[in-house]
Design a binder for these strands. Structure first.
Lengths: 234, 234
DNA sequence: TTATTTTTAGAACAAATGTTCTAAAAAATA
DNA sequence: TATTTTTTAGAACATTTGTTCTAAAAATAA
């Protein structure tokens, strides 16, 4: 009985994908589909997925809701589109890494960038459990993502240790700090939504700084110098 | 337009509170109201607040949804009831503290207990941002709660330092670890919902252990001994 | 141009949902 | 017992919401 809704949304929808307009042209007018995506992102972030209806989005875009449903037959399609945008953004960021010359500052910078990227679609993480329950595709994908992220973090730790930025630490400690890191990375946006009282423009920086500080007790003197220098800048 | 729903639920509802039955009697049959509360807790925890309707709850209890709305005229009333139950539970726990002879084990034990208490109503934290957006009373109350919790944690840190359980640490470090602690305390249930793969019965223990490990780098040798002993037991 | 396809608006639909109403049953009270 | 109050079931209601349908407009292709 309870699963009715869940079952209904499982079937996939064929995407039109007729053409991809406004490619490269600067200041090009956005197509209807793009405007739907951008407007829905803002509304979802502000009010939450359930509170925002297809009619709200259509009104905000300035089109009929029938038209919106022409471009995105299921509301889930919009959410899925946003999810894929974030995943692609993260993948692009990872692809840009060069492990040859990687230092603490670059890792911290990457952390900050990924926090900003996720914050752009904060509703995805703030409502993650609900979204995951409703859209199996996202649940499966995210779980597989976790393994990759964990490996990358472990790699970064190893590298920093080799470069004498962090001290020796036991496997248990490495495992713990990795889990701390992911929990913070996934839910700092929710915490901020409830408690953050500072400048909006500093929000990502504040929490990226806070999360990276998990490493602080394990940093060498040299590491701490670089750490402090990075976060003091600007 | 978007605020319509939000505005509608703001007005409070007068509670009947005719009488409080089944007081003290062991194995006493639960009254209708109590059964609604207990059943809704289970359903909310499993499926989420939005997915569970008053009809679902009524069906599960075995009463008509009209009857349910007689006891709880607004769905929000049920959520509020659960929220107050958690807050009262936490207050009772804090009231039981005796700062005179307080050691690390007792603090860790209190942490574990509070994790178990919260997990009993995990839907409240897993969907906190949404609930907070919908029910202003909860939002305000939780914010005020934060100040108290922070003070308590700071007190515990001071005490442990005085007892030579944790090393000297700067104010900045104290502040950071306090924020780490609250972020974990608020959202470990969400993380677990997504990624925890261990035994269900060990879930609270696992995350309480993980959260308390934030202290580990700052523990003295004596502190570490007590810490490890506590978590190894059983 | 003409023909074809894509896009759009708005009506229509079906299902769900929180809430209220009504009257009967049950319980409590006198 | 008689009377009053509380509790219950189920119909009824008003909205909301995602989705589909229809036909017209706009854009594109031939």
């Amino acid at each position: 009985m309870l699963e009715t809704h869940l079952m209904k949304i499982t079937k996939k929808t064929a995407k039109p994908t007729h053409k991809e307009p406004s490619q490269g042209l600067p200041e090009a007018k956005l197509g209807t589909k793009e405007r739907i995506v951008e407007t829905s992102r803002i509304l979802f972030n502000e009010h939450g997925v359930e509170a925002v209806t297809v009619r709200h989005i259509a009104d905000a875009v300035g089109i009929s809701h029938g038209n919106l449903c022409y471009h995105f037959p299921r509301k889930e399609d919009i959410i899925l589109r946003h999810y894929h945008a974030v995943v692609e953004g993260m993948n692009a960021q990872v692809a840009a890494w060069n492990p040859e010359h990687l230092n603490l500052s670059m890792i911290l910078d990457a952390l900050l960038k990924s926090y900003e990227l996720q914050y752009h679609h904060k509703f995805l993480m703030v409502e993650f459990v609900n979204i995951m329950r409703r859209i199996p595709e996202i649940r499966e994908h995210f779980r597989s993502l976790f393994a990759v992220r964990k490996q990358q973090f472990g790699f970064a730790l190893m590298l920093l240790q080799h470069k004498n930025i962090i001290k020796e630490m036991s496997d248990v400690e490495r495992e713990r700090i990795s889990l701390h890191n992911y929990l913070m990375g996934d839910f700092w946006m929710s915490e901020a939504e409830i408690l953050y009282a500072g400048e909006e423009s500093e929000k990502c920086r504040f929490y990226a700084h806070l999360a990276s500080a998990l490493l602080y007790p394990y940093l060498t003197a040299r590491g701490r110098k670089e750490f402090d220098a990075f976060w003091e800048s600007e």
